[in-house]
Simulated scan of single mutants.
Amino acid sequence: MADRMPSSGLTAEQHALGDVLEQVAVWLKQSRSAGVSATSLSVLNRLTDAGPLRITELASREGVTQPAMTTLVDRLQEREWATRTVDAADRRATLVAMTPAGRDYITAHRRARAQIIGDRMAALSLTDQRALGAALPALRRLMVPPSPAHDDRAASAGSRPQEVTRVGA
């Protein structure tokens, strides 16, 4: 059974995971290309993975205002990494799409990030490397926002956190 933190009802593992994930995010942010914001990289990644999106959709997914996203897209256009096109489904709307130069940039960025991570992982034991690889599916699921049905179940269960099994214990 996982230890519970009495003040918050969360487990020690949940607190520790939050701390480590934040440290990883800061480390990756510090290792990114100079002159490119984290939000710009996130938008480029999102456009690479999702394809063209409306500015309002990008703003919503990135958690920024529409005017802020418009400014960011302007900067991406200045670098020739993105372009605006008319949405064929609604000619009043504009889609933001990646350009070949944007794809080249994000591909190079991902390659450089993977190299940095690979260099750090090489210093770890084979057991730790395998544990990180085994954690990938759970980390991907962790990043998916809960569905409304999940939120309703949590509320009806008294918002008790799920029990966490200790890894390596």
Rank of each mutant, 00 (worst) to 15 (best):
R46F: 07
V43T: 10
V64A: 06
L47S: 09
R91V: 15
D104G: 07
V96K: 11
A89M: 04
G63H: 09
R103I: 15
S37A: 12
E62Y: 09
T107N: 09
R54H: 10
R103D: 05
T83N: 04
L53R: 15
W81R: 01
G102D: 03
L76A: 08
T56C: 13
L72A: 09
M69V: 15
T56A: 15
T65S: 10
H109Y: 13
Q30R: 10
S33V: 01
Q66H: 05
S31V: 05
T94W: 08
S33H: 08
W27M: 14
Q66I: 15
T85K: 07
R79L: 12
R54D: 09
W81M: 05
I106M: 12
E57R: 14
W27G: 07
T85S: 05
I116M: 02
D87S: 14
G63P: 00
R103Y: 12
S37Q: 11
D87M: 15
L72I: 06
D104Q: 09
L58I: 13
R92Q: 06
D87C: 13
E80I: 15
H109N: 07
L44K: 09
A112T: 08
L72T: 07
W27P: 00
N45D: 05
V73M: 04
L58C: 02
E57V: 15
I116L: 05
Q77R: 14
L47I: 11
A88D: 13
P100I: 12
M98C: 01
V36E: 02
Q77S: 12
Y105A: 03
L41C: 04
L47V: 11
L72Y: 07
R113P: 00
V43N: 01
A93M: 14
L58A: 06
R46Y: 08
L28F: 12
I55L: 04
R32N: 04
T83H: 03
T107A: 08
G102K: 01
P52N: 09
A38D: 11
K29L: 00
T39N: 02
M98T: 05
E80F: 12
L72R: 11
R46P: 00
R75D: 00
R103Q: 08
V36S: 01
V64T: 13
E62S: 13
T71F: 01
I55W: 02
G35A: 03
T85L: 09
T85Q: 03
A93P: 08
R84N: 05
A108C: 13
A88M: 13
R46K: 10
K29E: 01
Q30V: 10
I106R: 07
A59P: 06
P67M: 11
Q30N: 11
D87F: 15
